[in-house]
Design a protein around this nucleic acid. Structure first.
Lengths: 221, 221
DNA sequence: CAACCAATGTACGAACTAGTACGTTAGCTA
DNA sequence: TAGCTAACGTACTAGTTCGTACATTGGTTG
């Protein structure tokens, strides 16, 4: 999520709209993820860029629109990552497990994104609802799941009555919870869900869970 | 979570420390859950009680301690509900399913609690860490899971290599995600996870998932 | 019933914070 | 190279927000 970090070579061009804008977005992402929407300080964001608060209003209009822009970029990153998914050469069971693992990895690698999603939910997805881009972004992962699911159900391997959206929710639940609730869970149960030594364990647990659910023997219904 | 609502019978005693304190807690719970820690307004909380802001500082000391008190009470409610759990008369499979369903119901019935947990995680469980009560609250549900798990594993019904804390995380993940991420999920995928018509479907899905995971046939390892 | 203190209310202040009015400059273009 | 505009900086303000100093009263107890 860090897209800008040129060491400010002196003497070089001082004006660079694209870079200024991107730098504001980078810092704003950190600040909003750190403190929530209301906890984030516009002055603090400005102070941590090479430009001034004036530029935030110049480029984004206000705090609210800045947060929306942060969300849009964060979801854009996810979308790009999902477009890299390539599991079509695997059999359905292996493909689902691989997809689950990649989802697991991606959540772990983007805690700031998880925090932004939590924050946006506190605000009842108000900013997403007001964003043209986010309303119609779609989800490449969903298409992948749809294909695997169709293939697995057709062959009789998958017995579960789920569609792609539900399965996506199931996989995301586990990955999201592990990152989002790390702190309260750790404080209450004395177990760090992000402990590196347990990583493989939880990763396998997720895969086992999803496969077991999809392939379980079911009584006629 | 509404523990106070006497219709303020005029002429009756005006001073009631316990009621004033409880009323502040009720309103504060709503306000913090509504807007997050920084979004919540002390003046707003005061305005919605029958007392004044002065009393918030008199009883709780400050906004930070008020939020901690709100969390302590919210977790206390959960703890009490968990103590009502009674599934010991069921066989392990039925017991786990029942436990999952009760967890599902409880999450659905307490969205404010879910929001508070999300908010507390944004603040990295800072308030829980600073609370004597919350550090040592324990979890009755965990004991129940431990018993069921031991019984199921002993009889060979359960093949999965999990302990109670992990299983609790698995069950909670699904329940928590459904409530916490309702808004972004709905906005992005056009599906309301709390839609009443889908409730039974998701409730069964959770039970199926957990049972399938616990009882799946496993290759030797 | 006097005295005392817990409980409550009023009014205010100091600090913060989003946002803006106004002025300046870099660098492109005619 | 003159001029124009996008890009940028400074300084300020209006409104908010947590917190408190000070005054008051109800009820309980010796």
């Amino acid at each position: 999520m860090t897209s800008v970090e040129e060491p400010a070579r002196p003497g070089e061009r001082i004006r660079d709209a694209a870079r200024t804008r991107a730098e504001i977005l980078d810092v704003a992402t950190q600040e909003f993820a750190r403190a929530g929407y209301d906890g984030a300080r516009v002055d603090e964001i400005a102070a941590r860029t090479r430009t001034t608060k004036r530029m935030i209003y110049y480029y984004f209009g206000g705090k609210e629109q800045l947060f929306t822009a942060v969300l849009e970029r964060a979801y854009g990153v996810i979308r790009e990552a999902e477009q890299q998914l390539d599991v079509d050469h695997l059999d359905p069971v292996a493909a689902i497990r691989r997809l689950a693992e990649l989802t697991f990895d991606h959540h772990e690698q983007h805690p700031d994104f998880i925090r932004l999603v939590s924050i946006e939910n506190i605000h009842e997805a108000h900013h997403i609802a007001g964003s043209e881009m986010l309303g119609t972004i779609g989800s490449p992962a969903l298409d992948v799941i749809r294909r695997i699911l169709a293939s697995g159900q057709e062959s009789g391997l998958f017995t579960a009555d789920v569609d792609a959206v539900d399965l996506h929710a199931m996989i995301s639940s586990f990955c999201f919870f592990r990152v989002a609730n790390r702190h309260t869970f750790g404080a209450l149960f004395g177990r760090d869900l992000l402990d590196g030594a347990q990583r493989a364990h939880y990763r396998a647990m997720l895969g086992d869970m999803v496969i077991a659910y999809l392939t379980a023997e079911r009584s006629a219904d």
